[in-house]
């Protein structure tokens, strides 16, 4: 395009590119292709992406997110929900709730999307070794924590007892039901699921996810807990975990804020002194505990 400027084409064909964004600027996406797509619930889809160019993506880890760009619509932060041991493909689970997420959910295989990332902190997989691990997820909050479950299944001997408690609004809103059944079949994992409002076909537990916590088997003196879901769920789940004897500094939470850049430059995601995009999204509970007590922070 001749616009009177010195327009440079920054498409990155360089196989030395190590991040999923254009090497000329972390604010400019790299281009990925939708390999496949699957429906999770009535409003939630998973998409599998691979890099258009045969270039390496930097290692991504459980808990991190990418900024996904839908052409002409915008960009939103979406957690990586796939298996991080497969560094070839990136899986994202997206709930269709806004303009950009709608566009992303409507992508077809072969469509291209922009990807910047991976950004943010990770679940503390190393610090969990040798401990009982309690995983609490709510709603779409199972997606950012699913890579942890994959990781544990692949490195089962590194961890002690593992308990997963997942709450959803209704049975039809549960993510990954088949996979949950599969995790359940592992004798060395406790998997408990609950819904707020049941349908007649539902033969499982009814009640909020916090009510599952006292029924999980763990040794509170040697347990780490990971919590992901809306902030209000995190607040009550943490309260219940602590009242069940888990040490507050053994609890990690994944926070959500408005994010525009993913690299701490646009200011939107501030929570006290933290930039949730780069100091988070995964925080040790004790680092953010004080912020939970301040309204409209």
């Amino acid at each position: 395009m001749q616009l009177g400027y010195n327009w440079l084409i920054y498409m990155d064909n360089d196989s030395n590119s190590i991040m999923a964004f254009n090497r000329h600027s972390p604010l400019i996406p790299g281009i990925f292709e939708v390999k496949s797509k699957s429906k999770e619930t009535h409003d939630t889809w998973s998409i599998v992406l691979n890099n258009k160019e045969p270039c390496r993506v930097e290692t991504f880890n459980p808990g991190q997110f990418n900024m996904l760009y839908a052409y002409g619509t915008g960009e939103i932060p979406i957690s990586i929900s796939g298996d991080c041991s497969n560094q070839k493909y990136i899986v994202h689970t997206i709930r269709d709730v806004g303009k950009v997420s709608h566009a992303l959910c409507n992508l077809k295989s072969g469509d291209q999307v922009g990807v910047r990332g991976p950004f943010g902190t990770t679940w503390p997989m190393d610090q969990l070794k040798g401990k009982d691990v309690v995983i609490i997820g709510g709603g779409i909050g199972l997606a950012p924590i699913r890579p942890v479950i994959f990781h544990i299944l692949e490195n089962r001997d590194d961890y002690n007892r593992v308990a997963i408690a997942y709450g959803a609004r209704a049975p039809e809103e549960m993510l990954y039901p088949t996979q949950i059944m599969d995790w359940r079949s592992h004798l060395d994992m406790q998997v408990r699921v609950t819904v707020d409002s049941a349908s007649p076909k539902w033969h499982g537990q009814v009640g909020v996810v916090t009510t599952l916590i006292p029924r999980l088997n763990f040794n509170p003196d040697n347990t780490a807990a990971l919590v992901c879901g809306p902030e209000i769920m995190i607040r009550f789940a943490v309260k219940e975990l602590i009242s069940n004897g888990i040490n507050p500094d053994e609890i990690w939470v994944s926070m959500e804020r408005n994010m525009k850049c993913g690299i701490g430059l646009s200011g939107h995601c501030q929570m006290g002194s933290m930039f949730v995009c780069k100091d988070g999204p995964v925080f040790n509970y004790m680092d953010v505990e004080r912020y939970f007590r301040i309204k409209e922070l």
Partner: peptide, 17 residues
Amino acid sequence: LFKAERNGQGIQLETDS
């Protein structure tokens, strides 16, 4: 930050210096 064009299913990005 960038301009983008679409060709078929593809996206092409351009940016100025």
